[in-house]
């Protein structure tokens, strides 16, 4: 089965985020004065082949722990969605 995976990584609350502060100041200077608490993080997206949803989720969790995020200062969230079989049929057609 194919899954579309999105991983979102951001700094833990309380970790100073100078990039977020700079973006926030820029938004304020553009007149968006209601903006507060800007945090800048990372989004990582990929396609994963796995036998079932539980297996895919378990692999994604492992990837986050081992490599994608550093738990000392970052937290992460992920989303695993099954990719419709029709999409892979289309891809096969394109390859053919």
């Amino acid at each position: 089965m194919r899954f579309r995976v999105s991983v979102r990584i951001c700094l833990k609350p309380g970790v100073l985020d100078p990039q977020g502060q700079t973006v926030e100041a820029a938004l304020h200077s553009l007149g968006y004065t209601g903006v507060q608490g800007v945090g800048v993080g990372k989004a990582i997206e990929f396609i994963l082949e796995a036998s079932c949803l539980a297996e895919a989720e378990s692999q994604v969790e492992g990837m986050c722990r081992q490599l994608l995020a550093n738990p000392v200062m970052e937290q992460y969230e992920w989303k695993v969605e099954s990719v419709a079989e029709r999409a892979s049929d289309e891809e096969r057609a394109v390859r053919a």
């Binding site: 833990k12 969790e61 738990p71």
Partner: peptide, 16 residues
């Protein structure tokens, strides 16, 4: 030490 830090992480939540 790093494991302690990791234990306090908010990681692993599913993002909907």
């Amino acid at each position: 030490l790093n494991a302690q830090a990791a234990a306090g992480s908010g990681g692993g939540r599913q993002w909907q």
